[in-house]
Design a protein around this nucleic acid. Sequence first.
DNA 1: CATCTTATCGAACACGATGTTCGGTATTTA
DNA 2: TAAATACCGAACATCGTGTTCGATAAGATG
Lengths: 179, 179
Amino acid sequence: MDRRQQKTRTAIYEAMTKLLMHKKFEELTVQDIIDEANIGRSTFYSHFETKESLLDQMCNEMFAHVFSHDLTPEKSHDFSNTSDIEARLTHVLWHIKDHGNNIKAIMGGETEEVFTRYFKDYLRNACAQSIQDIDADVPEEFKEQFVIGSFVETVKWWIGDGMTMSPEETVRNYLKMMR
Amino acid sequence: MDRRQQKTRTAIYEAMTKLLMHKKFEELTVQDIIDEANIGRSTFYSHFETKESLLDQMCNEMFAHVFSHDLTPEKSHDFSNTSDIEARLTHVLWHIKDHGNNIKAIMGGETEEVFTRYFKDYLRNACAQSIQDIDADVPEEFKEQFVIGSFVETVKWWIGDGMTMSPEETVRNYLKMMR
DNA sequence: CATCTTATCGAACACGATGTTCGGTATTTA
DNA sequence: TAAATACCGAACATCGTGTTCGATAAGATG
């Protein structure tokens, strides 16, 4: 990849991170991003089709990072199912904390939908096995929806609350409610 | 209230209901609404500041209806707490079903946030007591967040799934997962 | 019925953001 | 050094928004 492309891409991402500290995503204009990144208008549009496409890619990369380090259960360890998933979820929360500012800005508004979709998809993928292991007298689809949905809601609440509660405690509380 | 105002207001609401069957809210333009409602441009803006303000009022009225009939626990009955809340939640789902089309359209997109906010607010208000009665070893704020959040997620899933599951079964499944 | 009030109409306008185009310039890569 | 390609940025067409205002029509009032 051409160094120039790398540079502009980085510039755009950094501009976004900076701008998102003061405004929520939908209030930003392409002009704002261009000015902050100090690039030409047509350059932006040669990298991203629209502002939303940029957001989409940012979310994708963010969650790719959050779920990057192996979250799959280590079969070698003798953790019971519950403590296994506890470790994984806590791990996720720590990584999310790294992106705190961005995520909070992306979440505060209608754009939340993109964030949520990515989050759920990655979660579903990472926890499929653990969820199957839970037994409850409800349809499989319902169980999955509930486990994923209520965890995402919990994380949203946690972030909105300023991530004051520790990841460990948050996950522990979540699991207590899940039983 | 002037009959003319009533008429235009009704026309706008009906236009929305019709348009929402084919397009999602954010894809609608004010012009679309005006044309469908067959009213003048300035008339629309004399009723609503923006398109979003219209959505806001629609959500408000919708949930006012959904939660209108007394959902407060009837102290006269000897229901245990669980069966009491079960009746209430089922009731809510039935009323939501009345607005099926509108809600589904409003939900399918970024606008979801408005819907969710109203839903949570009304729910919190209607179920405050029942939630307090649940005992779990977590902070009160967390408990509330979990109960409300996971129920709203369940309802969203239910609607997105076409409301095929019966309200009764949906609530029963939800309570099973909650334990 | 007569009159006063008020809602609606709709064309015109200013504004702001979007996404495209294109000729020229600068930087890479080979 | 030469060819390829990324960037620049002004200009443009387009679209949606929200406002204004004089004219018209419909409702309320007595």
